[in-house]
Nucleic acid binder design. Structure first.
Length: 449
RNA sequence: GCUGUGAUGGUGUAGGGGUUAGCACGGCAGAUUGUGGUUCUGCCAGCCCGAGUUCGAUUCUCGGUCACGGCCCCA
């Protein structure tokens, strides 16, 4: 028996119905926010991703060469392909901003864990060609709207702004340029020290750069701030106490948060956290992420923010842009766990078709005479499953029941004689004879719904 | 990158150096030649792969594969 490759999954009909419903739900939310769906190839040139994330990423890629020895790779994420598409398709000619959404599988060579797969699915959006607090609020609002709409509970949004700490550090005199012989700017080192809680390292860095190490304490206080929108007050106090530090980023974040509150449903938990750095240097402004605690170690289900990437594609005037990626599989995992815990039968809203399936059972007759009725019912929008095995009536009913049909239409010899069909609701048990034509059958089904 | 646990029909499991490998769900057929969900009967279907130890391995050992955890990192 050949097994499925490590870290991949098959989706059975039941699971797939759920995934389709979830995708459709996300898509509908994106559409309501003015976003339009795009699609890019599953594989791309290897360069695309090394340009964005550096050569270190290669070890995590499914990279290969085609028969002409072109270096290619299965895509590990979707943001870079979207950027590439904008440049390549001449989309910079379109009216700005662009609101783009996408969904598809991505591939990373990693160890399999729950919620971590080698083939995983990501839904995401990018708002391109406009930046600033309101554009950022639009993006966050969509993320919140999506998670709210899918019925997820107990999730936490953390919103920060990499500009706040960065401005504080540069305001104090720390350089954002990479010095000769170093591999990162002092500002980045300082951010790392703040993130890791290494105050001694930060103090030493300040001293080495001719800055008073006493500034370590207020920066630590700033980084440790955590709570709702009210934390912006203390943050403002700390920043004001520092010499030469701009409040611009903080003001922007405040504007963003106020707009989000007006644009989106209130999430179960929203925290301001200035250390949401996302660990990536292309983030330049607002950054945010969503966690679901019950998922444990792989609990981050969504992340995004403002970034500068389009200059890599010759489009510096479109920087910065803003977007997020949503971990499709992880959100589903969380929804499944929560549905299980609360005894909810429907995991994703809309995964079960309320119209139901109709079993069409020709019983002991020449089938060809009634096939036009099947076609008409389908054209009328009914979901018809035609009984194909010539089962006897009791078996056919049992079959219809076990595949989840809500209705049966039985046509046997007696019905043909009388020019009728027996329409039955498997939910109520109610049954009636109707005229043998699609309209009458459809009307009977509709009446019993 | 480091590390831990596990693998028995389609699913969930019991067992264990020699067994007809047990049970439940499921699927198929019948009881029941025009009506499902309950019931009864029968059947279908399994020890992840490879090597080693042994008279004999599904059971013990090692390797592989896959899954699931804990760090690191990311989504």
């Amino acid at each position: 028996m050949v097994q499925r490759p490590r870290g991949t999954r098959d989706f059975t009909p039941k699971v797939m119905a759920r995934r389709l419903a979830f995708e459709q739900l996300l898509e509908e939310r994106a559409r309501r926010h003015g976003f339009s769906r795009i699609q890019t190839p599953i594989f791309e040139s290897l360069d695309l991703f090394t340009a964005k994330s550096g050569p270190g990423i290669i070890s995590q890629l499914y990279a290969f060469e085609d028969k002409s020895e072109r270096p290619l790779t299965l895509r590990p994420e979707l943001t870079a392909p979207v950027m590439r598409m904008i440049a390549e398709e001449g989309m910079q000619m379109l009216q700005k901003p662009l609101r783009l959404s996408y969904y598809g599988q991505c591939y990373r060579y990693e160890e399999s864990k729950k919620g971590r797969y080698r083939e995983f699915f990501q839904y995401g959006v990018e708002l391109i060609g406009e930046s600033g607090p309101l554009a950022e609020a639009e993006v966050i609002a969509l993320a919140i709207d999506m998670l709210d709409a899918c019925g997820l509970e107990n999730w936490e949004v953390r919103i920060g702004h990499v500009g706040i700490l960065k401005d504080a550090l540069t305001g104090l005199g720390l350089s954002a340029e990479i010095p000769e012989g170093a591999n990162e700017p002092p500002v980045a080192s300082a951010m790392r020290f703040l993130d890791k809680g290494d105050d001694a390292g930060l103090a030493k860095l300040f001293t080495d750069n001719g800055i008073n190490p006493d500034n370590t304490a207020p920066l630590r206080a700033l980084a440790d701030l955590e709570g709702g929108v009210e934390t912006l007050g203390p943050a403002r106090d700390i920043l004001t106490s520092l010499e030469g530090v701009s409040l611009e980023a903080l003001d922007d974040l405040q504007t963003t948060l106020e707009a989000v509150a007006a644009l989106a449903p209130t999430p179960p938990s929203l925290a301001v956290d200035l250390t949401v750095a996302r660990g990536l240097d292309y983030y330049t402004g607002m950054v945010f992420e969503v966690k679901v605690p019950e998922l444990g170690g792989e609990g981050q289900v969504l992340g995004g923010g403002s970034y500068k990437l389009l200059h890599l594609f010759g489009l510096p005037d479109l920087d910065p842009s803003c977007g997020f990626g949503l971990g499709f599989d992880r959100v589903l995992l969380a929804l499944e766990a929560q549905a299980e815990a609360s005894g909810r039968s429907e995991v994703v809203p809309g995964e079960t078709d309320p119209k139901g399936l109709v079993a069409f059972i020709p019983f002991g007759i020449d089938v060809s005479g009634v096939l036009p009725i099947v076609a008409s019912l389908r054209n009328a929008g009914e979901r018809i499953e035609l009984e194909l095995r010539g089962r006897k009536i009791a078996k056919a009913m049992k079959w219809a029941n076990s595949i989840g049909c809500q209705f049966t239409v039985v046509i046997g010899p007696r019905d043909l004689e009388n020019g009728q069909a027996m329409v039955k609701s498997l939910v109520s048990g109610e049954q009636q004879a109707v005229e043998l034509n699609a309209d009458a059958i459809a009307a009977a089904i509709q009446a019993m719904r």
